[in-house]
């Protein structure tokens, strides 16, 4: 998994765009998002994607996942029955500033991506003493 941090020297988006242009099929993976005490968890179905072929980027407030899929069958195989196309997966999300960007973590397990988006710690409310003259 590569994590590209935004910077003036690299432009991950245009790299991604170039890669995407070579893809025959790009699918929007189905996702689940649920809340936890600590923040949010996102699951995405990416069958055929491994941690090596997944790119997860956070740039500014945008989280982008791009998973490349290598067809699991030899090229010369003849298709007899088709219910799905083999292609790559792409989806991106706008995050709010309530996410602790520096502590986003992700893992892949049997073709499912799990991204943990921790809640940023808010400062405690502070009582401001008022002086009286």
């Amino acid at each position: 998994m590569s994590k590209s941090l935004p910077g003036p020297e690299n432009e991950p988006q245009s790299e991604l765009a170039a890669e995407l242009a070579q893809e025959r099929f790009v699918f929007t993976p189905p996702i689940d998002i649920y809340e936890t005490e600590e923040g949010m968890v996102l699951h995405a179905d990416l069958p055929g994607v491994s941690s090596e072929t997944l790119e997860l980027q956070v740039q500014d407030n945008k989280l982008t996942l791009f998973g490349r899929v290598k067809p699991p069958i030899p090229e010369e195989a003849q298709l007899l029955h088709k219910e799905y196309e083999v292609g790559s997966f792409l989806r991106s999300f706008i995050l709010s500033d309530q996410v602790d960007y520096d502590n986003i973590s992700a893992s892949m397990n049997h073709g499912v991506l799990k991204v943990v988006l921790p809640k940023a710690q808010r400062g405690e409310a502070r009582r401001i003493p008022i002086a009286t003259n």
Binding site: S92, F93, I94, S96, Q98, K119
Partner: peptide, 10 residues
């Protein structure tokens, strides 16, 4: 607490 409130703009 709606960190992904703008998800629709995917």
């Amino acid at each position: 607490w709606s960190p992904l409130g703008d998800l629709e703009r995917e």
